[in-house]
């Protein structure tokens, strides 16, 4: 049972970690790091480390997100689209133009 809970949490955590790199909005990326922190703190509880879980919940899911969000505001990145995430699909333009020329 614990294993399955851990499996779900790990999957959520890794998806959130990938989202941190791929989401275009920095605000959403910071929120995704908080999700990673929260999942980690649950995982620490399952690994019988309540002290570490408490720290991670307070720091990873709370304080660190606040620091990053304040930094976003100060860096002028508090907006929904910045255009610098890792782009998984090819950018529309030259790369796409050759492929679907016949379409």
């Amino acid at each position: 049972m614990l294993t399955w809970i851990a499996l779900v949490i790990v999957v959520v955590m890794l998806v959130a970690a990938v989202l941190v790199l791929t989401l275009r909005s920095f605000v959403a990326a910071v929120a995704a790091t908080a999700v990673v922190g929260l999942a980690l703190s649950v995982l620490y509880v399952l690994l019988q480390a309540p002290d570490v879980a408490m720290t991670e919940a307070a720091v990873g899911a709370g304080l660190s997100g606040v620091i990053l969000a304040l930094a976003l505001r100060r860096l002028g990145l508090w907006q929904l689209d910045d255009g610098d995430a890792v782009v998984l699909k090819p950018a529309s333009g030259r790369a796409g133009a050759g492929g679907d020329a016949d379409a």
Binding site: L21, L75, D84
Partner: peptide, 10 residues
Amino acid sequence: ICNHLFRMLL
């Protein structure tokens, strides 16, 4: 991979 310093921090 990332080019943006803030994303590198994350």
